[in-house]
Amino acid sequence: MADGLYRLRVSYRKDGRLAYLGHLEVLNTLERSIRRAGLPFSVGNGFARRMRVQFSQALPVGASSEGEYFDVMLTEEVPTGEALDMLRRATPSHLGPLQAAYVVRKVPALEAWLNRSVWRLHVMGEGICPEALDEALGLVRRAGSITYMRGEKPRTIELGPTLVGWEFVGARDDGTCVEMLLDTRSSNLGALRPAVLLDAAFGQPPLASSRQSYVRVCRSAQWHEENGERMEPFDETFCASLT
């Protein structure tokens, strides 16, 4: 690398009880894991002298994931297998690293670049069936947007650019759980949170006699989409030696 820095991309899980960590808590925990691992990380020259690390888009509190990402700048090129082992030994298992590879320096920052997500949802409650949920989601989509409260402030999310689609995977016969996949797209206009969509759906007439008690949310995949083309975080056009 021209300036002696190497950009190591790492994918990691977020599951178990650590699903309840907020985004900042995940960031802090992983930064401390990188320090504990003894990786030769680069430190920025700013006022606060922070580690040079970037993360993918925030997961909601309570959501787990099978594939989150961070890029950390290293001052030495540690073999990826070795780097991954060092990280695994220093990271809580529920945030355990999965894969690592060096990526070229000039790829865009992860947070904005990973603009597509697939979510696996377990919708728990009473009297829930896929057909009614499908109908309710259709009504929400036709409304075009959802206005919801974030803290004490109302926020509106447009569904046209953010909601790609959904599909049902399974359901319990007793109406207590429906499993589905949700496909979303994020942009600088915002990102659709699965729980926001479901809350809106449960306000629709087809689900009037149903009750949602809890949604288990897991992000199962993320990728970059550009002009209809899908590009993976470890795409071989800009990364090598995936471990």
Binding site: G22, E25, T29, S33, P92, Y214
Partner: peptide
């Protein structure tokens, strides 16, 4: 008794207070 506590965590502020298993 974590299984009794866990269903309540989604309803409270700062659930990370109650997770334990810190490094």
């Amino acid at each position: 008794c974590f299984d009794q506590l866990e269903p309540l965590l989604a309803q409270v502020s700062h659930p990370a207070r109650y997770l334990n298993h810190e490094w």
